[in-house]
Amino acid sequence: MQSLTNRSKIVSNKTMTWSERIYLPAILAGLKITLVHFFKKKVTLQYPEQTKDHGPYFRGRHVLKRDDQGRENCTACGLCALSCPAEAITMIAAERKPGEEHLFREEKYAIEYEINMLRCIFCGFCEEACPKDAIYLTEMIPTADYTRKKFVYTKDMLLEGIEPKDRIDISKRRKGIREGAM
């Protein structure tokens, strides 16, 4: 019967010629390919010593940003948790006390903030939802570990440092998000 899609391949059962039957030309052709690749540039990277640059849209583990004065941007509004399709983000909010104005930018801040890196699918919705410019995905990769508990990243692991050397540069990614490229 004729096939309806007409996509099936008809197999031919033609007999091989003498030159094909001795296989030597085919073997030599194969060896030639191997030999050509032997002198070509190697594509393998010696990973831990050598690393490859990430593309501009790479989405790695998160960072909680501070503003120029070193105050935490996050105000625990919960929009990242709301937008998260994997339910990876949880937080507990607290009220800023008088005298803590140099630590937190707004009246409310996240006293606890957790991201479960096993749940996270690195989609970047959280940084898109964030109204306070507080969370960004970086080029860092969550490292492998032995227990599930260690993949729950707490606030002190996610928050960047106050000193200029401890800051994590996300300017490239921020620019991309604002232009709608990512």
Binding site: A76, C77, L82, A93, E95
Partner: peptide
């Protein structure tokens, strides 16, 4: 209820 949670949670 101040800062306990968000309404949508």
């Amino acid at each position: 209820f101040r800062f306990k949670s968000r309404v949508w949670f």
